[in-house]
Amino acid sequence: MSLVSITLISIVFLSLLPHTPKAYGPLNYACCVKYTRTPLPFGVIAGFIEQSSLEVCRIDAIIFITQKNKKICASIEDQWVRAALAHLRSKIAKLENKASLRLTTAGPNSVIQTNTTNSP
């Protein structure tokens, strides 16, 4: 076989191999490229993710995830976005407080001592 034949066969064979996606970064990562200006009702928001322009994507954004797993891009500069984030953070804080209360509450077999002295 000639060198040209071997080269052509090698090129065809290598082009049939699947390319490694790790070499190109996370291909399934979708970046926000524009914002919605329409406020979302708070009841449809299930959570959020922060997108930073310092990472893979070009703009800073808040990505709201709806209860139907739809992703909505919004700007942190919008008042409705800041209000929604504040509401979500307060819900998280309440859940964390409830969880810590459950951890510190005495169980059914615990003895709770109280001060029963009467003050004049």
Score class of each variant (00 low, 15 high):
Arg102Ile: 04
Arg102His: 10
Arg82Lys: 07
Gln67Trp: 15
Ile65Cys: 02
Ser53Gly: 09
Ser53Val: 05
Ala61Ile: 02
Cys31Ala: 07
Ile49Val: 10
Phe48Ala: 00
Glu77Met: 10
Tyr24Arg: 15
Ala86Glu: 00
Val12Ala: 13
Phe42Pro: 07
Ser2Glu: 11
Glu50Lys: 07
Gln67Met: 14
Asn109Trp: 11
Ala83Trp: 03
Leu14Val: 13
Ser10Arg: 13
Ile63Arg: 00
Ala61Trp: 05
Thr36Glu: 06
Cys31Gln: 00
Pro39Cys: 01
Lys34Met: 09
Ala74Cys: 03
Pro108Gln: 10
Val33Ala: 14
Ile62His: 03
Cys57Pro: 07
Ser53Ile: 01
Glu55Asn: 12
Glu55Lys: 15
Gly43Met: 11
Cys31Tyr: 02
Tyr24Pro: 06
Leu54Gln: 13
Leu16Pro: 15
Val4Arg: 10
Ala84His: 01
Ala99His: 12
Ala46Glu: 08
Pro21Glu: 12
Ser5Thr: 11
Gln79Trp: 13
Ile9Met: 08
Glu55Thr: 11
Ala30Tyr: 12
Val81Ser: 03
Ala46Trp: 03
Lys98Gly: 14
Gly25Trp: 06
Pro108His: 11
Ser110Cys: 13
Thr20Phe: 11
Ile6Glu: 13
Gly25Thr: 09
Ala30Met: 13
Ile63Tyr: 04
Thr36Asp: 05
